[in-house]
Each structure stands twice: as C-alpha cells, then as structure tokens.
Computed example of a mutant assay.
Amino acid sequence: MDFFGAYSSDNVLFLLEGLGNTLFVAAIAIVFSFLLGSIIGILRYAKIPVVSHLLAIGVEIIRNLPLLLIILFTKLGLPEVGIQLSVFSAAIIGLIVFESAMLSEIVRSGLTSIEKGQIEAGRSSGLTYIQTVRYIILPQALRRMVPPIVSQFISLLKDTSLAVVISLPELLHNAQIVYGKNSNYVMPIFILVAAMYFIINFSLSIAARKLEQKERKGTKAAKATISNEPYTGSTAL
C-alpha cells in the first residue's frame, strides 16, 4: 500500500472534484424529488378518484425496481425512443424518479398519521378541505416527516455512487480512475473515499436525530399542555 503516492495533491483534488459532482447531483435530485414526492403524496392522501389509484400503481412499480435499472434506463433506454440525455441529466432524472416514489410514501404516511378528528374540526370551523390540509394537517405532518425524509436524503446521497455504471464523474468513478493507475493505491483510496462518505452522511444522521428529538419534545410539550401537566422538557434518548 502506497499512502504517500495515493494521497498526492493531484489525486486528492481529483477525488474532491468527484465529491463536488456527487453533492451537485444529490442536491438537485433532493430538491426536485422532494417537490415531486410531496405533490404525489398529497394527491394520494386526498384520494382523488382514478388519479390516486394511478399514482399508487406508479409509485409501487418504481419502488419495487432497482435504482440501478432506472439509471441505466434513463441513459441507455430512452435514446431508443429518441430522448438523448447527458450523463449528468440521466443520473439526476433517474434519482428523481426513484426518490420521488420513496418520498411520496413518506409524505402520504405522515399525513395519514394525523388524527381524522382534526379534519372534521377544521371543516366544522368553516375551512374547506384544501384549507384544512394546508393549514392544519400538513404543518403537523411535516414535523413527523422530517426525520424519515432526512434519512431518505442520506440514502439518496449514497445512491449517487450507482451512477458510476454510466460513467458519471462522481466520487467513486474518480476513485476508480485514481487506483487504476497503481494497484498499491486501492486500499488508501478506498479508505479516503469511505471517510468522505462517512463524514457527510454521519453529519446528516446527527441532524436527523436532533430533528427527531426536537419533534418528540414538541409532541410531549403539546400533550402536557392539553392535559395541564407540567412539562420538564427532558427527552429519553
């Protein structure tokens, strides 16, 4: 193993360039998959005739397909019907399609976790169904959805490595190029790449745990207020 040669400035900068591409693709996929997934989840929760059933079928199909297959399809399958995509576009679209299906289920589950009595209370106060969902149900559901959504984002970040099969110049792709120069670089490069992934994903995991603890504190505080019980603010870890 040649750590000194593997960690030369050129190699490290090349890996950082790949990491930058990884974060770029992940960031775009996170934003658009969250928006699309939220829309799909809300539409499914609303149980609109035909639309909700068609969306449910589509979500279940995508969720049960390997992400690798979807990425390959966007790059190699779509050109067969005249749709040419760059490597970056194919990777981003593949991730958005897959992650939107996963996030839509999180959103739908979060909405359905809110007691139905709150919908009835909102309607009885003069709000429309849409207003009730927007102002009463959705804000409460979002607090419960944050931890699983962050966890899904962590999975998305790791899943960008699958785009190496279509030669996306992300972190793992660049790592393969570096250790392909010298077999003595394999272990040092693997260690460095693993450390990069770990630092980013572990940081996000800590953020997810803190958000979950905050949500638990908020829930306990609300229950204590309703029952007129004193709330200490402590949370069991």
Rank of each mutant, 00 (worst) to 15 (best):
L211S: 15
S100H: 05
Q84W: 08
K158W: 11
A224Y: 02
Y45S: 06
Y135L: 11
F198A: 13
S234F: 14
L171F: 11
L138T: 02
P169Y: 06
F32E: 11
L172H: 01
E229H: 09
V150T: 15
I119V: 12
Q131V: 00
L168N: 02
A6N: 11
K47M: 04
I39C: 06
G18A: 05
I200Y: 06
V150N: 07
L157Y: 12
F202Q: 13
I200R: 08
S155W: 09
I130P: 00
K217Y: 06
S89T: 15
A91T: 14
P66L: 11
L103R: 14
I70A: 03
I166C: 03
S100E: 07
V12P: 08
K158H: 09
S9G: 00
V25Y: 04
Y7I: 03
F198P: 07
L67R: 05
A29Y: 09
I39D: 02
I154P: 06
T132C: 07
F4L: 13
K214C: 01
Q152H: 03
A121P: 04
S151A: 15
V193P: 13
G18E: 02
L237N: 13
S183W: 06
Q140D: 05
K220Q: 15
T22I: 09
Y129N: 06
L142F: 14
K158Q: 14
V25H: 05
